[in-house]
């Protein structure tokens, strides 16, 4: 459970707030996506919810952030270990450097918590399998491709079974197959009751996976709602977010009367196919308009 209330934050060297008066909640079993243009404050928000900002960065903050009911202001970072997982944008920096194989690297967090060896091995192997990393388990983390390092970074957090998971563009270097694995894993997490906050650029994935979407623009939340509501908003481009082609096509078609009037603009392939299917049917029967 994530609760953020009236939160503003300015970096020590910042001239304007990186986040201003941010207000939102994410429930367990909910995947909340954060979208926005470059420099909108998305990564800062990820840091805030995972406790690294402002604990490690310094800077001035106002408002409250509560994770699983605990106020992060009075919780040291070490108090959140194992409870909040953070997958950062750059997987290279998430790799500890302290372990010499993919398998050991995934175990690193569990070792630090003193988990017994047998339990640790079972949990590590499960994660390797879920993320398709079994084939490279004995390789050095530094010999992996960028995409594989991203999977490793995700795996090393997943294995700790956090109840709140924060991911900052975790699949930017992955191909479609790797992406599918990650989103499948996120789906399983949700079922297990985990609270997920995900920063992501690929809107089509979000339209399917997210329960709710927040739009950040220059540090402020400018829209929140279901993917259908938010991603079909005509101001999306102004906020620096790419609209889906389905939405763009339907909006333009609607301008020419070629999109069913009652239907909301689509954000998924299914919705687009249903709407345009109706158009085509009517055209075929000649009873359009």
């Amino acid at each position: 459970m994530i609760e953020v209330k009236g939160f503003s934050f300015t970096y020590p060297t910042g001239s304007r707030p990186a986040l201003s008066d941010v207000d939102f909640e994410v429930e367990p079993r909910e995947l909340c996506a954060v979208v926005g243009g470059g420099g909108a404050g998305k990564s800062t928000l990820a840091g805030v919810v995972s406790g690294t900002v402002p604990h490690l960065t310094g800077g001035t903050a106002q408002g409250t952030v509560r994770v699983n009911g605990r106020d992060l202001d009075d919780t040291p970072l070490s108090g959140l270990v194992g409870e909040v997982g953070l997958v950062m944008q750059n997987p290279f920096n998430q790799i500890s450097g302290a372990r010499f194989s993919v398998r050991e690297e995934i175990a690193f967090g569990l070792e630090n918590l003193g988990v017994p060896r047998d339990e640790m091995a079972a949990r590590v192997d499960l994660v390797l399998d879920d993320l398709g990393l079994t084939g490279v388990r004995d390789r050095s983390p530094y010999e992996l491709s960028g995409g594989q390092q991203q999977l490793l970074a995700i795996g090393s957090v997943l294995v700790m079974r956090p109840t709140v998971m924060v991911l900052d563009e975790p699949t930017s270097q992955l191909d479609a197959a790797g992406n599918a694995l990650v989103f499948e894993a996120l789906g399983t997490l949700k079922e297990q009751g985990v609270t997920v906050l995900l920063i992501e650029h690929r809107m089509e994935r979000l339209a399917h996976a997210a329960d709710r979407v927040l739009v950040l623009d220059r540090g402020a939340i400018v829209a929140k709602g279901t993917p259908g509501e938010v991603l079909a908003d005509e101001r999306l481009e102004e906020w620096g977010v790419a609209p889906l082609r389905y939405t763009v096509a339907a909006r333009r078609a609607a301008g020419r009367g070629l999109w069913p009037a009652r239907k909301p603009l689509p954000v998924t392939l299914d919705a687009a196919a249903a709407g345009f299917g109706e158009t085509v049917d009517h055209l075929d029967r000649g009873d359009w308009r």
């Binding site: 690294t52 500890s96 630090n112």
Partner: peptide, 9 residues
Amino acid sequence: AAMETRGFG
């Protein structure tokens, strides 16, 4: 930051 969130120490 990553090390700390992974419980190092």
